[in-house]
Simulated scan of single mutants.
Amino acid sequence: MDQILFSRVKFHNDQKAFEYIFDAHYAALCAYASGILGSHEDAKDIVNDCFLEFWNKRQSIEITSSLKSYLYIAVRNLSINQLRKRKQKVSLSSELTYPFYKQEEVSAKIEQLQQMETLEERLKEAIDSLPKQCRYIFFLNRFEQMPYKAIAKKLNLSEGTVKTQIGRALKKIRLEFEGVKTKGEIFLFNLVCHF
């Protein structure tokens, strides 16, 4: 899901997608920065700076691994820079500590992130299982924001064929998301399957 959200932020300046990324990662990143800095307030400042920089540089950012890894590395680097500014000698342990967050809250946030990763995998599998042409048409419409007419012209098809192919793709994805209940599932469904 992060890949989809990042694409919408980078190429379409989608503020809702950015807000969802922020909400999904903020608490865990604060906990991570707190473990390095030993200060909850400093950690919040660092994470806020990280997201501000992420938004301002969104069009030039290249992510080679995952968005989550990118954010953690950015927060780590900003935290280390903060420590250097304070001229404090702090031993950075490979184990995370969460002195300012209740362990239950951190565990719940991690579980939520894991559920979203599973959900993103379900979506990817549903899209990957589409026939080649159907998948490509769906991708052009939902991820490249191309209208039916432009897709039809690009692929030398009728608009009716394009509409039919997208309808088939949506039907298959809806079956995968039957009974959605969580906020994340509903958000992801609406993000990809909006009309």
Score class of each variant (00 low, 15 high):
I173C: 03
V180N: 06
H25V: 03
L71H: 01
F143G: 02
Q103C: 04
S65P: 00
V180A: 10
N13Y: 15
I46Y: 01
T182N: 00
S65E: 10
S93A: 07
R86W: 02
A31D: 10
F195D: 14
A152V: 06
M116W: 01
T118D: 12
L130V: 12
M146W: 04
K172R: 11
Q133F: 09
A43L: 02
P131V: 04
F6K: 02
Q88A: 13
Q88M: 11
A17K: 02
F22Y: 15
K154L: 13
S34P: 01
L155S: 11
M116H: 03
F139R: 07
S158F: 12
S66H: 02
S94P: 09
K172I: 11
L155A: 09
F139G: 03
K102C: 06
K44F: 02
Y136N: 11
C50Y: 00
E53C: 07
L5V: 09
S79Y: 00
H40S: 07
Y70C: 04
S129R: 14
S60G: 05
L67H: 00
L78Y: 02
L67T: 00
F18S: 03
A150T: 13
I73E: 10
L170A: 13
K109N: 05
E104F: 04
I173V: 11
K154R: 11
C193A: 15
F187A: 00
H12D: 08
K171M: 08
I151Y: 00
K87E: 11
R135Y: 08
I73D: 08
Y26E: 00
N141K: 08
Y72P: 09
L37N: 08
Q112M: 10
G184A: 15
A169Q: 05
E185I: 07
A33N: 06
Q15S: 10
Y72T: 08
Q88F: 03
S94C: 06
Q115R: 13
L191P: 03
L78G: 02
A150F: 07
I137S: 01
E105T: 15
K102P: 01
I36T: 05
E176C: 15
G160T: 13
I36R: 01
G38W: 00
K172T: 15
R135F: 07
Q82S: 14
I61W: 06
S91C: 09
N48C: 08
T118C: 09
M116V: 14
N56P: 01
Q3C: 06
A169D: 10
G160W: 15
E176V: 13
A31Y: 04
K172S: 12
A126D: 04
L170Q: 13
S158N: 02
K183P: 09
L140N: 08
Q3Y: 13
K153M: 11
D45T: 12
E62Y: 12
N77G: 06
A43H: 04
N13T: 10
S107D: 12
N156S: 14
E125Q: 14
K163N: 13
P131C: 05
S158L: 08
E120V: 02
I63C: 06
D14Y: 06
Q15Y: 14
Y136V: 11
T64M: 09
N48W: 07
M1F: 04
M146P: 01
L155E: 10
A33W: 01
I80T: 12
E19F: 05
I166D: 05
I151W: 00
S39T: 09
K183C: 07
E104D: 14
L170G: 09
F189R: 01
E117F: 03
M1V: 08
F139N: 05
Y70W: 11
